[in-house]
């Protein structure tokens, strides 16, 4: 039983950075901007977060620095694609490649550094419950923040006027422009917010989850977060579901191996991706689902007045 509790706990922790980064990318995409630079943003914010936590001695400082770094990189990306109308795909890939090299370069001094002692976290009372305590309530606060963020994003997108405007910009920037909304400003705001969220996710990886900095440590999680937005058909709640599914399958295979359960590890390693393909097939069978949710202007440049 305690094995299961540990597995659930590990799943929540593994899914958290994916959920936060996926949520950030979802906001981007809801405004019509595809940011393929997620991997690079995660890496840059991971090193920034680690550096801040290392010098400042506080992991919250690390998250703040990660968010700032992510937002800064996203602002450059946003300026390029929104104002200069560069190709979103190529620019995103450039950010990704730039991020991996740049983070390695500025991070040289931080390889092998140790952050201070990690505090154990527990929710009062609930953390003492048998099974549920170790499974759910002894997590880093950021795990709960991720859930709250998903709820907040959901509320923002579907229950507020600003969220409606954001979605309108993603669906039909021409119409939004005709109604007098500043499409480019809104898109930039969405990109920067998304970058800040990716930044928090990157800092979570290097400050709490792993916790260490080494070149390339994000190891493809940015791409998984990008896949998650499609997997979730651009709905925040499903991002959370998908992130835990990915985290869960990865953790499950490691834990089963450690327990000596005889399953080919290669098979288990491919499971999350099989799950993605299966879900994509299922949702694609219903064209309405994709059409209803996929932002219509995703990846397309917008020229005001054109």
């Amino acid at each position: 039983m305690s094995e299961v509790a540990l597995l659930v706990a590990a799943t929540l922790a593994a899914g958290t950075p994916l959920a936060i980064a996926g949520l950030g990318l979802l906001l981007n995409e809801r405004a019509g901007i595809l940011n393929l630079g997620a991997e690079g943003m995660l890496l840059i914010s991971a090193v920034a977060g680690f550096a801040a936590a290392f010098h400042g001695g506080s992991e919250w400082l690390g998250f703040a620095a990660g968010a700032a770094a992510g937002a800064a990189v996203a602002a450059v990306f946003g300026w390029l694609v929104v104002w200069l109308n560069t190709n979103q795909y190529a620019t995103g890939l450039a950010v990704s490649l730039f991020g991996s090299g740049f983070s390695a370069f500025v991070g040289i001094d931080y390889v092998g550094r140790q952050l201070g002692e990690q505090r154990a976290h527990a929710v009062p009372i609930l953390g003492e419950l048998p099974f549920l305590g170790p499974a759910l309530f002894r997590q880093h606060p950021m795990v709960y923040v991720a859930v709250a963020l998903v709820g907040a994003a959901s509320f923002f997108l579907y229950r507020t006027r600003a969220g409606l405007v954001l979605r309108a910009v993603g669906e039909s920037p021409q119409s939004a422009h005709a109604l007098g909304y500043g499409v480019r400003r809104i898109r930039l705001a969405a990109v920067v917010t998304g970058g800040a969220l990716c930044g928090v996710a990157g800092a979570f990886l290097s400050v709490v989850y792993t916790p260490l900095w080494v070149e390339g440590m994000v190891a493809g999680r940015g791409w998984i977060a990008l896949a998650l937005t499609v997997f979730a058909t651009w709905r925040p709640a499903r991002i959370l579901l998908g992130a835990y599914l990915f985290g869960g399958v990865t953790m499950l295979q490691l834990h089963l191996q450690a327990q000596g359960v005889e399953l080919p590890s290669q098979f288990m390693a491919m499971l999350p991706y099989v799950a993605t393909v299966v879900v994509l097939v299922l949702i694609s069978r219903n064209p309405l689902w994709i059409r209803l949710n996929m932002p219509a202007s995703l990846g397309k440049p917008f020229f005001p007045g054109a």
Partner: peptide, 12 residues
């Protein structure tokens, strides 16, 4: 090379 996954494997 996948430090987060190496960490999780070690943890398990």
């Amino acid at each position: 090379f996948d430090p987060p996954k190496e960490t999780e494997a070690a943890q398990s």
